[in-house]
Amino acid sequence: MLEIKGLAASVVGKPILRGIDLVLPSGEVHAIMGPNGSGKSTLSYVLAGHGDYEVTAGTVTFEGADLLAMAPEERAAAGVFLAFQAPIELPGVGNANFLRTALNAVRRARGEAELDAVQFLRLAREQAKLLAMADDMLKRNVNVGFSGGEKKRNEVLQMAILRPRLAILDETDSGLDIDALKIVADGVNAQRRPEFSALVITHHQRLLERLVPDRVHVLAGGRIVRSGGPELARELEARGYAALTAEAA
């Protein structure tokens, strides 16, 4: 469903991605690990369509379509979802209003009927409850005054409501305690179905114990330097990136 070929990208003229090749089949969860500055977040922003990142080479095909030619909102409508590493605060925008606007925009683009306020609130409350989120988080402004953990849960809530076909989780586990980590991992696992796939960017093995990946890729210096099964994550945890990237080089 997602096929990345020779992808290179720069930020303000500085090359960050230097030729990524990756195939993510439907129904699979792949993890991307790697040291700081290796290009993990850049990859996630490029896939979501952030304007600051310039694609200099390569292609990305999502369900047969040219993903790079699409505006961010078109990617969302097509089923791409990025859980932000640092979720953005929107003062003056209520969380429920934000979620409903997003859901209805996506449904409209997909030719589905919009949800009215009552239908939407029922769905949102149900999903928020599964994520052990307080009811008032729907009433508050988007991410304003949220703790780090609340922001991450709010990302997972958005994912649960938008039901994407491709979720990119950019360090959604960072800053979470063990209980929150479990809730987030369960939230992603609840999405797993044959037509859902996920790219999980993480530094830590502990998320991958709960959210078991089909494949693990190691990103270093803007390239994927190694790929393997879930055991690769454990090896990384034990030996560190330095040993692995040295071997690859």
């Binding site: 961010p72 925009a105 996506v106 958005q158």
Partner: peptide
């Protein structure tokens, strides 16, 4: 704020 704009658009909200 371009980051706020991107956040909304990444959730499917047209520009």
């Amino acid at each position: 704020d371009p980051e706020q704009m991107f956040y909304l658009r990444s959730r499917g909200v047209p520009e």
